[in-house]
C-alpha cells in the first residue's frame, strides 16, 4: 500500500478507541440479537422496510450534473462532468467510457479514512462503473470519457447503493444520453434474517459468519427494461437464498423509481422556469 507523503498521516499503530468500549465485550451473537429484537430493528424499522430517501439535483455548481442523496443517515454527493477525451489513449475506441471514483470522506466512517483510495473504495468504484456502463448510451460519445465522482459524507450502510442511484440521477441531469433509469438496493443476510437497506452496524455484522449463511447482496436494476445491470454478493449463501433475494431486491428497486422520476421532473421544471 503506497503511503501518502504529502499529508500528515495518523501513526500506523493507532487503534480506534471504540474497540475498548463495553459494547465490544459482547459476543457477536449478542450484538446481532441486539440489532434485531422481535423482528424490529434498532431504528424501529421492520426487516423489509427501506429507509426514507431524499434526492436533489444540481447541488454542485461547477459540475455538469450532480445529485445529493440521503438515505436515513447515509449521505452521498455525486457529480458528473462533461465528456472529455480519454487521456493517454492512442487508438480509437467505438464506445465512450465512464470513469468512476467512489470515495469515503475521511470523517464518514467510525474509523478514519485516508485521502487516497483504499482497496474497498477501488472495488466500489469498479462496481459503480460496471453498473452505470449498462445504462449509458456509450456509442453516442466515442473516444470520450465521462467522469462520475461519488463522495460519501456519512456512511450509515448501503452507501454504494445510494451512490449508484444518485449517480444515475446525476448522469440524467447532466444530459448524458441514457437508456434507462438505474436504481440500486442492498440486502444484508444473517441466518434467517434478511434486512433491507441495512445500516452500518447491520451491514458490518452480516459480513461476519455468526450463522452458517450470511452475506451482503447489492442489486442494480434498470427500471423499464427490467434488467440487472450489476449484481454483487459477498459472504456465504445458498442458491435459494440468492434467487429469493434477487426477486425481493428487484421489487425494492422498483419502489425507488418514482422517487427518482419525481426528482428529475422537478429539476427539469426548475430549468424551464429559469429560462
Amino acid at each position: 500500500m503506497p503511503v501518502d507523503h504529502k499529508r500528515i498521516n495518523a501513526p500506523e499503530s493507532a487503534v480506534p478507541y471504540k474497540l475498548f468500549t463495553k459494547l465490544n465485550t459482547e459476543s457477536l451473537k449478542e450484538q446481532y440479537q441486539k440489532a434485531i429484537r422481535d423482528g424490529i430493528r434498532v431504528d424501529g424499522r421492520k426487516p423489509s422496510e427501506h429507509r426514507k430517501i431524499f434526492l436533489k439535483t444540481g447541488i454542485v455548481a461547477h459540475a455538469k450534473g450532480s445529485a445529493y442523496i440521503e438515505q436515513g443517515n447515509t449521505k452521498v454527493v455525486t457529480s458528473v462532468f462533461d465528456p472529455r477525451e480519454i487521456p493517454n489513449r492512442t487508438d480509437y475506441c467505438l464506445k465512450g467510457e465512464i470513469y468512476c471514483e467512489f470515495k469515503f470522506a475521511p470523517f464518514s466512517c467510525p474509523k478514519r479514512r485516508l485521502h487516497q483510495q483504499d482497496s474497498q473504495e477501488k472495488e466500489c468504484s469498479a462496481i459503480m462503473k460496471k453498473a452505470l456502463e449498462a445504462v449509458v448510451c456509450r456509442e453516442e460519445f466515442p473516444n470520450f470519457q465521462v467522469d462520475v465522482y461519488a463522495l460519501v459524507l456519512h456512511n450509515d450502510g448501503s452507501a454504494l447503493s445510494a451512490a449508484v442511484t444518485a449517480a444515475g440521477v446525476a448522469l440524467a441531469s447532466a444530459g448524458i444520453p441514457m437508456f434507462d433509469i438505474i436504481t440500486s438496493s442492498t440486502l444484508a443476510i444473517q441466518g434467517e434474517h434478511s434486512l433491507f437497506d441495512p445500516n452500518f452496524r447491520e451491514e458490518l455484522l452480516s459480513e461476519i459468519a455468526i450463522e452458517k449463511e450470511h452475506g451482503v447482496v447489492i442489486l442494480c436494476v434498470t427500471s423499464t427494461h427490467q434488467q440487472i445491470s450489476h449484481f454483487h454478493q459477498t459472504g456465504n449463501l445458498q442458491l435459494n437464498t440468492i434467487t429469493q433475494s434477487i426477486d425481493t431486491l428487484h421489487n425494492t428497486c422498483k419502489e425507488i423509481v418514482p422517487v427518482v422520476q419525481k426528482c428529475l421532473v422537478k429539476s427539469v421544471l426548475s430549468v424551464i422556469s429559469e429560462s
Binding site: 460496471k130 456502463e133 449498462a134 449463511e213 452475506g215 434498470t222 427494461h225 427490467q226 434488467q227 440487472i228 445491470s229 450489476h230 449484481f231 454483487h232 454478493q233 459477498t234 459472504g235 456465504n236 449463501l237 445458498q238 442458491l239 440468492i242 434467487t243 434477487i246 426477486d247 428487484h250
Partner: peptide, 29 residues
C-alpha cells in the same frame, strides 16, 4: 464453496434479465 455461493460478480458491460441471471447461477454451481 461447498455448494454455497460465496461471491458473485459480473464482468463485461452487459446487463442480464433476472431469469437468465438465475439460470447462470444454477449452471455455475
Amino acid at each position: 464453496s461447498r455448494g454455497n455461493i460465496c461471491t458473485i460478480s459480473q464482468t463485461g458491460t452487459g446487463s442480464f434479465h433476472p431469469d437468465t441471471f438465475k439460470s447462470c447461477l444454477i449452471l455455475g454451481i
